[in-house]
């Protein structure tokens, strides 16, 4: 099994990074290339984080993607106009981002494009479906894990996780974090809740109620809903945090408790708290399951240090049996 073979099993894959500059763009370009070389028709888009203003705040530059002839891509009008390739327009969205509508097009030759896409899950899904309709077999989504974003990378069928020296120069730190992320992405699915409007919901033997609590950041207000109840499920449409799970464990609620989030990217928790909570017999679940199917490691840090990636690659590969590769080396170790 090679990486292209693994990727082509899925019709949509998002690329998610552990930190800025972990080589997400390098990964994306690498994936585009190997899929393209395997004659798989691809589409590329990105999850927009509310347009330019956010970009300026977080100082992240939108990546330039290198596309091959025949590849589909969807980007906002502003970036479509600045593209450096010849491309054929297939669709223009009805919806608007702060930098224009989203244009879906097909590359007529190879070259660079800046990708900035839709800003919510429904719209991303629609965009993915359009590209599939026009002929893309696999759509790659440049994903972002952000509490600010209305969209989640888990909207795709699978996730490629990208990490590296930008996250930490310590091999063991990178390993710990990556294993943690993969574990989170493998949480079981929960069926008792549907995609609800924003808020915190609690299920006890008396049924499901919507609480007056807006997010789990106000975790102390939750106590009165679950005090003395057995088999409690708490579902939040927002983020699950360390402080919340710690509180639940300290109050000895964990044993009876299942905490549910939309998908694994909504868990902003550390490996320590994760393990503590599970040890106390608490359960974590997701409404939508989207597994990490491959990991990429960028050995070069933004300041120029290079780390050795061999240990990381072999260890993760041993534990999970998924492709792990160094983006600076042309061939994935998995293929060797």
């Amino acid at each position: 099994m090679n990486l292209a073979g693994e990727l082509k099993k899925y019709s949509s894959i998002s690329i998610v990074g552990s930190e800025k500059n972990t080589g997400k763009t390098v990964t994306l370009n690498y994936l585009i290339k190997i899929l393209h070389d395997s004659k798989i028709n691809i589409g590329v888009t990105s999850i927009g984080i509310d347009g330019e203003s956010t970009d300026q705040v977080t100082k992240t530059k939108k990546p330039e993607i290198i596309l091959g002839e025949g590849d589909f891509f969807a980007t906002s009008e502003k970036h479509y106009k600045s593209k450096k390739i010849t491309s054929e327009i297939f669709d223009i969205s009805d919806e608007n981002t702060s930098i224009g509508r989203v244009v879906t097009a097909k590359a007529k030759n190879s070259g660079k494009v800046i990708i900035s896409g839709p800003q919510n899950n429904l719209w991303i899904k629609k965009t993915i479906d359009k590209m599939k309709k026009y002929g893309a077999d696999t759509v790659l989504v440049d994903g972002a894990i952000s509490r600010l974003s209305h969209a989640s990378p888990a909207v795709t069928e699978a996730v490629v996780f990208s990490t590296g020296a930008a996250f930490s120069l310590s091999e063991s730190e990178i390993l710990k974090d990556t294993i943690h992320r993969i574990n989170l992405s493998r949480l079981d699915k929960e069926y008792d809740f549907n995609d609800e409007e924003n808020g915190v919901y609690i299920k006890t033997d008396e049924g499901i109620i919507k609480t007056k609590i807006k997010s789990l950041l106000m975790y102390e207000d939750i106590d009165r809903y679950i005090e003395g109840k057995k088999d409690v499920k708490i579902y939040t449409t927002g983020a699950v945090t360390d402080s919340f799970l710690k509180h639940m464990t300290e109050k000895k609620y964990a044993e009876n408790l299942t905490v549910v989030a939309d998908d694994f990217t909504k868990f902003f928790i550390s490996p320590q708290i994760f393990n503590l909570f599970l040890k106390s017999k608490g359960k974590l679940r997701v409404l939508k399951s989207s597994k990490i199917i491959a990991v990429t490691v960028n050995p070069v840090s933004p300041s120029g240090y290079t780390i050795n990636t061999e240990g990381i690659i072999s260890k993760i590969n041993n534990i999970f049996g998924i492709p792990v590769f160094d983006v600076m080396k042309e061939v994935s170790s998995y293929e060797l």
């Binding site: 010849t86 054929e88 327009i89 297939f90 097909k106 007529k108």
Partner: peptide, 17 residues
């Protein structure tokens, strides 16, 4: 219903591409 400046608009363009 797709659009770009098609090669067939102009021979010279087609040659450049």
């Amino acid at each position: 219903n797709t659009f770009y400046i098609f090669d067939s608009y102009d021979e010279e363009l087609s040659e450049i591409r």
